[in-house]
Write a protein that binds this DNA or RNA. Structure first.
Lengths: 311, 311
DNA sequence: TATCCTTACGGAATTCGTAAGCATG
DNA sequence: CATGCTTACGAATTCCGTAAGGATA
């Protein structure tokens, strides 16, 4: 039994039992059609078609029963193709990125622009949350990819990959006394009230640690989740801002001056996280590659494997 | 796409993604299996299996979707053969009953006797197994009808039908102290070591539940799959036996006394299970009718249809 | 006589199995 | 180093198309 035989049976019914027409409808030879019918009738041990002499006239009783199942089988083979097409039209589907404001606002736009150009039919969802929420979304399968600087490492069911390094930077209103200091120090910064990220966001822990190591007391007058809020308050003169360097765009942030920190702060590393064992669509790997060119599908697979081994 | 490729996909799932085992199960060569998988994946344009390196680990998302349809197609090809067999010889063929010892030994003999008289040319296979094995046999198409008291309900691809109700009964050696109690209680039974069915067999769960509800600790000194073993040990004085009431034949079990339980235990219901979507020969329906007269072909079809509708 | 199916046969294509190679645990 | 998959290639089988022949309206 093979699918071509079933196609021929179905087509014979549709073509009113004219095997010549069946052959042309299926782009094959008429003797081949005859043989296929004979073969499957022999295999099943029943006559499917009523014959008068050599001509086919209709279906026998078993033929009627069989044709229903034959139709369903052929429909199902179509369904297989449809299901596959749905997945293999690699350019359609959903991709959920869970990330923090900093990444979403200052890092990902260029990646997303490129991705959208190449995969215009992928429905891209950018979900913003705290690192904890990002990890939860990954774990619960509500996100495909998590991106954050903190809170993603050392989770057994997540695999993390370093993406890029960055430093914090100081922003002050134009003309602020700090702009006149030849070389910034932690001490000079700590003299002013500070405005920076919430604890748990965008390297805040590293900021605190650095000041603590230097034995300096800081006055964090306001902490926010995102650099936009921080910048707004720095503009009002509330204090000196500490933000991620990539969150400063000199063209847009007129009224503010970025002061280079020359390794005053710890280098931060932004990580990408994946749920172990979760199947990712190919365009998800493409997205990651756009973001971190070294992270191609193969190297990710390799890392997942290595990290699975007992330590 | 061809049927052999689909068989290989199904078998790969069943053989836990070991292509070497798939090849031997399908009596073909392993490289052929590999190639078939590669070919259909290429044709459909999706990866069906998750791989680590060269090894197959499981199904991808599209794979999971596809396998369901693949199973249905292969089931239908079986159905074609069965339908044909039905017409080519109405009274000959195979009928495989998968059931437990209790049913095979104490319930089915009369049914089978009658069936064999009416369909002498049907090759009847009585396959004995645990409820789990019975369900597997039905699901894999190795059995036509499953009969068991436990473990057959609530399986989405199986349809179950209540057949008859029964109760557990107590057996003790003749002259046992319990024979002198005017009316048995759970408490008096629990005072003795007990011999009864394995967990998962012949209503054992209901026995445990009843004692637990009564707050009674039991001492199950031996559990067995079948009543014959239980009776043998009760005869030796090992303990008090709890068996299905139909497993006691006063004429044969000399030396043992059956004690009426008067609703001490939960009423058990023995079920019959069929694989949804599997075509049954007419004599299979006849067998079911002999067993449960109310279950005729029409009422079974009706139930199958109704239960398939969304709830 | 035209239509329609079957049989026969040679070539094409597919499938299969063996052997060898490579990766992995 | 055993297990498990892939690649390669020749052999076997199946499938297909052409040609010829027979039956029926």
């Amino acid at each position: 039994m093979n699918l071509q035989q079933l196609r021929i049976i179905r087509e014979a019914v549709r073509q009113d039992y004219n095997l010549t027409d069946v052959a042309s409808a299926l782009y094959t030879s008429q003797p081949g059609v005859s043989k296929h019918i004979k073969d499957i009738e022999d295999e099943l041990g029943v006559e499917i078609f009523v014959r008068r002499g050599k001509r086919l006239l209709g279906l026998t009783d078993p033929g009627r029963e069989l044709v229903g199942v034959v139709e369903r089988i052929l429909l199902d083979t179509q369904n297989l193709r449809r299901i596959a097409a749905q997945f293999s039209s690699k350019e359609t589907g959903n991709l959920v990125i869970a990330t923090t404001h900093t990444q979403a606002r200052y890092v990902l736009p260029s990646v997303i622009t490129q991705f959208r150009k190449d995969y215009p039919k992928v429905h891209l969802v950018l979900h913003q949350g705290s690192p904890g929420e990002i990890a939860d979304m990954l774990r619960e399968g509500r996100a495909d990819i998590g991106i954050a600087t903190e809170g993603l490492a050392s989770q057994p069911d997540l695999a993390t990959f370093a993406c890029y390094d960055w430093q914090h930077a100081i922003i002050v209103p134009d003309g602020h006394p700090l702009t006149r200091e030849p070389r910034l120090t932690l001490e000079s910064i700590a003299r002013y009230p500070l405005v920076t990220y919430h604890l748990g966001f965008t390297g805040r822990a590293n900021i605190d640690r650095r000041f603590a190591e230097a034995g300096l007391q800081t006055d964090i007058v306001l902490s926010a989740i995102d650099a936009d809020v921080i910048k707004a308050y720095v503009e009002t003169g509330l204090g000196v801002g500490i933000i991620a360097e990539m969150a400063f765009d000199p063209e847009r942030n007129s009224g503010l001056t970025l002061l280079p920190t020359h390794d005053l702060f710890v280098t931060n590393t932004t990580h990408l996280a994946l749920r172990r064992g979760r199947y990712l669509r190919s365009f998800a790997y493409r997205f990651i590659e756009y973001f971190v060119p070294e992270l191609d599908e193969e190297s990710i697979e390799r890392s997942l494997k290595v990290e699975l081994e007992p330590v």
